[in-house]
């Protein structure tokens, strides 16, 4: 089976809404970052948010996990209003959401093993060494880096950091994944590998994902549906093929 056919098979999804953002606005002082964001993420779907730098893409997904609180509008995850949740409820919800940061955000004073142990011991409260070891090995094999287990983050390349960051997030088996510019700063080959890894996460772990990017190659590989953002609002929605053939100059500028 060719890679492209395989990719097409993995794509597709739909069904229940897991994330719903309705008329969300957010400002930092006088700087309005989000004006009016409306989006739905369906269960099992890979939703790509495409847009230039500084259009509020990262702020959008930070509102989803409650790292930032919107000034107006509603953000609902699994039907729960994120801004109305108590600290404990928010913590419980966050365990069901994975967040891959742009830099990987690995804890740089810990080895890869300790990075992966951290959520297992503190969130899942696991203490059985063998069980922890098995889970770590399984997830490291999943991201293709079984030999990095005892390395420090400073010894890893950019692509490896992102893979380990993804492993640390996926080790909790979240139902939703939020990827913040997963391929930024990587060479085209590593970018493609990361994009395919995102797709394989959907296949292997059945996660629903929002992928923030301005990398068209990544969007092509991963997207079931694409939202284009500009100046804090969604300006266009469609599949990759639909947007690729759009006559809108702004949309076209991404595909050139």
């Amino acid at each position: 089976m060719s890679n492209d056919t395989k990719t097409e098979e993995i794509k597709g999804g739909g069904g229940d809404t897991v994330i719903n953002m309705c008329h969300v606005a957010k400002s930092f002082g006088d700087n309005t970052v989000l004006r009016d964001i409306n989006l739905d993420l369906k269960k099992g779907e890979n939703l790509v948010i495409l847009g230039k730098s500084g259009t509020g893409k990262s702020v959008t997904i930070k509102c989803v996990v409650g790292l930032l609180t919107q000034d107006k509008g509603d953000v609902k995850v699994f039907g729960q209003d994120v801004s109305a949740l108590s600290e404990n409820k928010l913590k419980e919800l966050r365990v069901r959401i994975g967040f891959l940061f742009q830099s990987g955000a690995l804890y740089d004073s810990m080895t890869v093993r300790e990075n992966l142990e951290f959520p297992l011991r503190r969130v899942l409260k696991l203490n059985d060494k063998k069980d922890i070891e098995n889970r770590i090995n399984e997830i490291l094999n999943g991201v293709g880096l079984p030999d990095a287990i005892d390395k420090m983050p400073s010894e890893l390349s950019g692509g490896m950091r992102k893979r380990i960051g993804l492993a640390r997030t996926m080790i909790l088996k979240p139902e939703i994944m939020l990827y913040d510019e997963p391929t930024t700063g990587l060479d085209p080959i590593t970018s493609k590998e990361i994009s395919e890894l995102i797709l394989s996460m959907k296949q292997n772990y059945h996660v629903s994902s929002i992928i923030i990017t301005h990398d068209i190659a990544c969007a092509k590989i991963t997207a079931d549906r694409i939202l284009v953002m500009d100046k804090g609002a969604i300006v266009k929605e469609g599949t990759f093929d639909e947007l690729e053939h759009s006559k809108d100059n702004f949309i076209n500028s991404f595909f050139k």
Partner: peptide, 21 residues
Amino acid sequence: SMKVTEQIDAMEVSGGNPIQY
């Protein structure tokens, strides 16, 4: 520097407790 490199945010969104740790 943990804040700048989003390590504290990562700890928080993974359900950990950065204040405690």
